[in-house]
Amino acid sequence: MLGRRAFLKLFGGSLFGLMALGGYAFGYEPVIRLDVTRYALTPPGWTPGLKLRIVALADFHACEPWMSAERIGSICAHANGLGGDIIVLLGDYTSGTDLITGKVGHRAWAEQLATLRAPLGVHAIVGNHDWWHDAAAQRSGRGPTFSHRALSGVGIEVYSNRSVRLEKDGHGFWLAGIEDQLALRRSIRWKRPFTQGLEDIGGTLAQITDDAPVILLAHEPDVFPAVPSRVSLTLSGHTHGGQVRIFGWSPYSPSRYGDRYVYGHIVEEDRHIIVSGGLGCSIMPVRFGVPPEIVVIDVG
C-alpha cells in the first residue's frame, strides 16, 4: 500500500506528465513541428523511363493560432525546396475547428499558396470543409466555393471532375481530380436528407484519351475501392492520419472504413493509394504521433 508521501510523488509525477503531454499535443506538434515523409514506388502501368517527383500538401485548415498565414508561407517555402516536378494540394484550406483565436481569410491563405513553385505547376482539389463553410454553395448545391475561386484567383489549377494531360521528358501522364465526396451536408434547412458527394470518377476518367498513366487526386480516401486499376496512383488527405496515433494505431478516423485508409501507402489488388497525414487540425486542435507533414513521392 502506498504511503502518503509516495502517493503524492506518484500523483505529482503523473500530473506533470499529463501537463507535458498536453503541452506537446496542443502546443508543439500541431503548431511547430513539420516532417517530410517520403515514398518511392513504381506502380503497375507506369511508363518506363518516366521519373516524377510529386510534392503533396493536404489539410492546411487555416486559422489562428494553429495555422497562421505566416506558417502556411513557411510550409510553402519548405515545399519549394524539395525538388518537386509537380505540387498537388489535396483540399481543406479553411479552418476545421471552432477553437481558434482568429480567422485566416481565404485571400490570405491563397496568397501564401501562390508562392508555391514547380516546373509542372501547382494543381489543387478542394475538400469537405471548403464546401461546408460556404453557405452559398450549401444553399445552391453547387460550386464554385470560395476556395475554388481563391485558388483560381492566384493562378492555381483547380480540378473538379477534370483530367489534364501533362508531360515530362517526352513522357505523358494524366492528372485527374474529382470533386469532394462529402460536399453537400445533410440539412433540414436545405431539404437535403443525407450528405451528398459531387465526385464523378467515371466522367473524370472518360476524359483520358490515351494509355499514359493516371494520377488521381481525391480528398477523401474512401473512394479508393471504386478506383479502377487504370489509375496508377491515388493521392488523398482528409483523415489527418487519425490526428492521434499511438504505436501506429488511431483511435478515431473520419472514414467509414475505420483504420483501413487512415494513413500512409496502401496497396490493394495491385492498386496504390497514399494518404497524407496533412498539416492542420480538425475538430480539436491537437496532434499526437502524427505530426504535420509534407509528402514527397518519387514515382518510377
Rank of each mutant, 00 (worst) to 15 (best):
T101S: 10
G121I: 06
V122Q: 03
P144D: 09
G91P: 10
R139F: 11
G96K: 05
F146A: 04
I100E: 00
P119S: 05
H129Q: 06
L113Q: 13
V126L: 07
K103G: 01
L113A: 09
T97L: 11
T115M: 13
Q112R: 15
D134Y: 09
G127S: 08
A108W: 02
D92P: 01
G121Q: 03
A136R: 13
L120S: 08
D98K: 14
W131D: 09
A135K: 12
L90F: 09
D92W: 00
F146D: 11
T94Y: 01
R142N: 13
Q112F: 11
W132G: 15
L90A: 03
L116A: 13
G91E: 05
T115G: 12
F146V: 15
S95M: 10
W132D: 11
R107D: 15
D134Q: 06
H106I: 02
A135I: 13
A110H: 11
G91C: 04
S140V: 09
V122P: 07
T145P: 12
P144E: 05
G143L: 02
G143K: 11
L99G: 00
H133E: 07
D134R: 00
R149Y: 05
Q112W: 09
D92Q: 01
L90H: 08
A137C: 08
D134L: 01
W131E: 08
G105M: 01
L120H: 11
L113I: 07
A108V: 15
R107E: 15
Y93K: 01
Q138F: 08
T115L: 15
I125Y: 03
H148V: 14
H148E: 12
G91Y: 02
H123N: 10
A136M: 08
G96T: 07
V104A: 05
H123R: 09
A124C: 05
H148S: 12
G141L: 12
P144Y: 04
N128R: 07
L90K: 04
R142C: 07
R149V: 08
